[in-house]
Design a protein around this nucleic acid. Structure first.
Length: 313
RNA sequence: CGCGGGGUAGAGCAGUUGGUAGCUCGUCGGGCUCAUAACCCGGAGGUCGUGUGGUUCAAGUCCCACCCCCGCAA
């Protein structure tokens, strides 16, 4: 293995890249592809992506094509003579000329046990669905979206209090460990390819505003899963009755307080902040009012963001 | 120059038409109680983001400049 090409953009890609850099940079050429950051964010500034920042810091060769579709880029890519392409949270579909070129192909590090949760948001979706386990799949890429043959999977069981944030960290580092082990095995062609069972395939679509909105008439257990599956970002959202402003619930837990009230009603503010749900109730722990920073539910009560008897909607 | 909210005691907030700052919680001390995260009394703690800026008899409160935080949108 002389030349490794890493393609990644999202935060999930950083740990694997760092691990590859640590273990292989001294004996392989390492080139990084990452999506160029568009002017964005508050003030429409251009902030560097985490992968780009790391690659530049280590003075790795960086390519940031806006798209790979143009065949003209094929010449440039072929000229790299990549032996293996490793993809993690890249954000661009790889065209045939990339998939077919490297001697050892293109492998993807995906944060689910494929064929379940193909697509953009596997980490969030498995928690929202209340799954008890997930994992990392190292897969040989093909022309479909996360449909390639599986090389290696490792499972991870999910604790009830797992959040998207903690799970993200765990899966990113698991992915990093696995890819470091996988590279030498790939070189020896030691993996056997396993087709994905199409019948079991599910799709983890990107999170939308609708996914974030809390419907308090649903059972507390479901809302709890929604909250942790979206915590800390992008967060589950509702609105306060007082001013109609957005109100994020970052952290909550199931409450056994048998308070009676209508869904969304704040039935207690001390010693615990409890909101009635369609079935059961939730105790709010960490919240974030619009325009403010994260704060404990108790602080929100002190500052009168949350008032006993009012409703969240 | 994308839109918007905000920087006031350790924390979350209030502060009306400008006149030397309040609330809830925490904290410290005391009391009540079998006991307490409950209740009562008392105390400490703030150069009100920065500016040897402007207006004014007087600015947290109006004007200017700058720094920082956050929400939306991408």
């Amino acid at each position: 293995m002389k030349h490794l090409v890493f393609m990644g953009t999202g935060a999930f890609a950083l740990a694997p890249l760092q691990a590859i850099y640590e273990h292989f940079a001294d004996r392989c050429r390492l080139t990084v592809f990452t999506k160029a950051q568009k002017p964005a964010g508050r003030g429409m500034k251009c902030k560097p992506g985490c992968v780009e920042a790391f690659a530049r810091e280590k003075e790795l060769e960086v390519f940031q094509p806006q798209t790979l579709k143009e065949e003209s880029f094929g010449e440039t890519f072929r000229a790299l003579r990549a032996d293996l392409v490793i993809v993690a949270s890249y954000g661009l579909l790889l065209p045939g000329y990339v998939l077919d070129e490297p001697e050892f192909g293109c492998v993807n590090i995906h944060a689910s046990l494929l064929p379940e949760y193909r697509g953009a948001a596997p980490i969030n979706r498995c928690l929202i669905d209340g799954k008890e386990k997930t994992g990392i799949t190292i897969m040989q890429m093909d022309r479909g979206l996360d449909t390639g043959d599986v090389l290696w999977q490792k499972e991870l069981s999910l604790a009830p209090e797992e959040t998207a944030g903690t799970l993200f960290e765990k899966l990113a580092s698991l992915g990093a460990e696995m890819i470091v082990e996988a590279i030498p095995l790939l070189e020896k062609r030691a993996f056997s390819l396993q087709k994905q069972e199409e019948a079991r395939a599910t799709y983890a679509a990107k999170i939308t505003a609708t996914d974030q909105k809390i419907d308090w008439s649903r059972p507390a257990a479901e809302i709890f899963n929604q909250i942790r599956g979206l915590s800390p970002l992008p967060s589950a959202i509702c609105r306060t009755q007082k001013d109609g402003k957005r109100f994020k619930i970052i952290e909550a837990r199931l409450s056994d307080e048998g308070a009676q009230g209508a869904p969304g009603e704040i039935v207690s503010v001390k010693p615990r902040v409890v909101v009635q749900c369609g079935e059961g109730a939730l105790e709010l722990l960490l919240v974030q009012p619009e325009g403010k920073g994260k704060m404990t539910a108790a602080d929100a009560v002190n500052g009168r963001k949350l008032v006993l008897g009012e409703y969240l909607s």
